[in-house]
């Protein structure tokens, strides 16, 4: 038997034993006379009894039993409210292992094991992956080092073809849900002869898969300007191809709204947005008073993605 080097007197612990032998009453009396309290004494066989004693009195119990020549004693179980304490005391390795497991689980939960792209914007997976790589978000990066909201905003700002991006954590997976903007959602046919701008503004981004660029980033363009042409030169011979390209133009449009009433800035913005069809434009309103009427000058700044394919 394991020696009880530690005192469990104050703990609610007990041990149940199975004892084989005759004249069991003598053992009970001897235990009582030596101050050992016995519980749940039951006869389970012809010569077999079970008896429960306090865990702290185990050694005394064995000594008395052996004194009376009861040698066939088998421990059935340990129990009591404080049994978990005893269990962990006896299985320190298990406790350490469990603690180690919890610590490892805590840390491993913090790592990104993979990425998942969902939504219509997942067709731009490669571009989003490049952005993530630029920002240092790779496999085995830590979630705690990433601000998912700013990452979502960054992905959205980086790619004008996306209208919605949301990064979420699902276990050890970084889920990126995205939606294509209406312009970006067109299906490629490859039959466009050229890409023409429908707004005036500055080219901020240009990507050409097929065709010849007639403008570059930073160029000012007017409405009706050809941005990408379907004529390419192959071995000094001009060849017509279907244009596949997209160009982002940062446009600025000014609208004037005149009213007899003061405080109609919001109405003026709505009017301007209706005119352009841009609901997410950045709007600035300036109000002047001319001949008793209020003139609202609305400046809309928006990014227009022009797509051909």
């Amino acid at each position: 038997m394991r020696k009880n080097r530690h005192d469990f007197k104050n703990l609610d612990l007990y041990s149940t034993y199975e004892i084989k032998g005759l004249n069991f009453g003598a053992l009970l009396n001897a235990l009582k006379n030596r101050g050992i309290t016995v519980y749940d004494v039951r006869k389970t066989g012809e010569k077999t009894h079970t008896v429960t004693v306090n865990f702290a009195q185990n050694r005394n119990f064995f000594a008395i039993a052996k004194e009376l020549c009861y040698t066939d004693i088998r421990k059935i179980k340990d129990g009591g409210k404080a049994y978990p304490v005893l269990f962990f005391f006896r299985n320190l390795g298990l406790l350490v292992g469990a603690a180690l497991f919890l610590v490892l689980a805590f840390f491993s939960c913090d790592f990104i094991f993979s990425f998942s792209f969902s939504g219509s914007g997942s067709v731009l997976k490669r571009e989003m992956e490049n952005y993530l790589k630029e920002k240092g978000v790779t496999q085995f990066s830590r979630f705690s080092d990433i601000d998912l909201t700013s990452l979502s905003d960054g992905l959205l700002a980086d790619n004008p073809r996306l209208s919605f991006v949301e990064c979420q954590r699902s276990g050890n997976i970084l889920v990126i849900e995205s939606a294509l903007s209406e312009e970006g959602g067109k299906v490629l046919s490859g039959n466009s002869e050229r890409l023409v701008s429908d707004v005036a503004g500055t080219v901020t981004d240009i990507k050409i898969y097929r065709g010849t660029a007639l403008v570059k980033e930073g160029d000012r363009v007017a409405a009706g300007d050809v941005l990408v042409d379907g004529t390419v030169v192959v071995k000094d011979v001009p060849v017509n191809v279907g244009v596949i390209a997209y160009v982002t133009v940062s446009a600025e449009q000014i609208f004037t709204y005149v009213s007899d009433n003061d405080g109609e800035e919001s109405l003026a913005i709505i009017f301007a947005e209706e005119q352009t069809g841009e609901k997410d434009a950045e709007a600035h309103v300036e109000k002047t008073c001319e001949e008793g009427r209020f003139v609202y000058t609305v400046t809309l700044v928006f990014s227009r993605v022009l797509f051909a394919g």
Partner: peptide, 9 residues
């Protein structure tokens, strides 16, 4: 019958 508790008389 079984002895539920036995101590000190």
């Amino acid at each position: 019958l079984f002895v539920k508790k036995y101590c000190a008389g």
